[in-house]
Computed example of a mutant assay.
Amino acid sequence: MTEKDFKLPDYSYDKVEGNVVYKSPSNIALIKYWGKKENQIPANPSISFTLTACATTTSITYKKLKAVTPDFQFDLLFEGLPKPDFKPKIETFFKRVETYLPFLKAYHFKIETSNSFPHSSGIASSASGMSAIALCLLEIERDLNPDMDADYFLKKASFLARLGSGSACRSIEGDLVQWGRHSGTTGSSDLYGIKYPYKVHDVFKNYHDTILLVDKGEKQVSSTVGHDLMHGHPFAKKRFAQAHENLDKLRPILEQGDVKEFIKIVESEALTLHGMMMTSQPYFILMKPNTLEIINRIWAFRSASKSNLCFTLDAGANVHVLYPENEKEEVHQFIKNELVAFCQNQQYICDRIGFGAKRLS
């Protein structure tokens, strides 16, 4: 599909008012996306586990205006309070998607949103947040144009979410979602995420992710700035090629249930992501001393116990501990015994693979 396919024929704005609510999960990338082109196009493909517990719930109440206005009309509440610093991002998103949602200036929107996890702490709050808003808006369009089929709805929701935050396009569905054109993946696209189309071994279908909250504060360098620093990065070309190569390697690993090789790719990808941050100009470090302490303890525990737990990192200091269902008791005990002490206020989130966003009544 192309961008033109997401522009529907003219339809009337005959619905006066309504309300729609979606709960959309975050996701954790296994193959990382870092760097993008114009219009939120990724510089390399990525693949992620969709999560369950880490999610954003968004309600949009809409009311038709007496006339179409030159500006977007909306109020925004985050966790029950006005959040003026969020409004410019929503304004930018509306400008990007107006071509595909032409009703936006015909309504006033009240957007109420909340997270089940700390905002701006490296748990991809933009992914869950922007995907939830995209789904709500597309649901409004479906109310205005009921002929939209389910497959088109999912693709367009992912397409719209991408225009708000790149990784948000991977939060519409689950449990494994790939985004970015890749010659080895049928149906892959730079415009939206797709459910991973190949066979996946049962061991990877109920994976757990415990997120260790090393630092719940806002990152000193945003992901948007970090992506921009990949332009002219001395190692960018090789990194983008590496992502394609790792996606090829991952296919037989996922099919055969090769957890040992899975660990090698996932941890290497996490460290490469942060390596690109540390070698950009200007360079920066998002990991904290406790991040490194946790990684070293994971390595020591895995070596001694022959466990199959591993770590990954997003663009932040927090550590995602990934492990199979059949090891959860042992890993939970290890986390309590050795890792919780390195979390801010001893806080962590137990999560697992999920199956995408849900509309709430």
Results as ranks from 00 to 15, higher is better:
107 Y>S: 00
45 P>S: 06
48 S>G: 07
27 N>M: 01
64 K>G: 02
47 I>H: 03
58 T>Y: 01
78 F>N: 06
52 T>N: 15
79 E>L: 08
57 T>P: 05
17 E>A: 14
22 Y>V: 02
36 K>G: 04
76 L>H: 08
111 I>C: 00
89 K>E: 05
92 T>R: 15
22 Y>Q: 01
107 Y>L: 03
12 S>V: 11
62 Y>A: 09
10 D>G: 11
67 A>M: 14
56 T>L: 03
115 N>Y: 04
31 I>F: 06
55 A>L: 04
19 N>Y: 13
98 E>Q: 13
113 T>W: 01
24 S>G: 00
79 E>I: 04
113 T>F: 01
120 S>F: 03
42 P>Y: 04
59 S>C: 13
125 S>E: 09
15 K>Q: 15
110 K>Y: 11
81 L>R: 15
36 K>N: 11
108 H>A: 09
131 S>K: 05
122 G>N: 02
100 Y>I: 11
40 Q>R: 15
19 N>W: 13
73 Q>F: 14
129 G>M: 00
72 F>T: 04
126 S>L: 04
70 P>N: 12
117 F>S: 05
56 T>K: 02
53 A>E: 15
103 F>P: 00
69 T>V: 15
87 K>H: 06
82 P>Y: 09
46 S>H: 12
16 V>Q: 14
38 E>C: 11
39 N>M: 10
23 K>R: 14
31 I>S: 02
48 S>M: 04
50 T>V: 13
126 S>C: 00
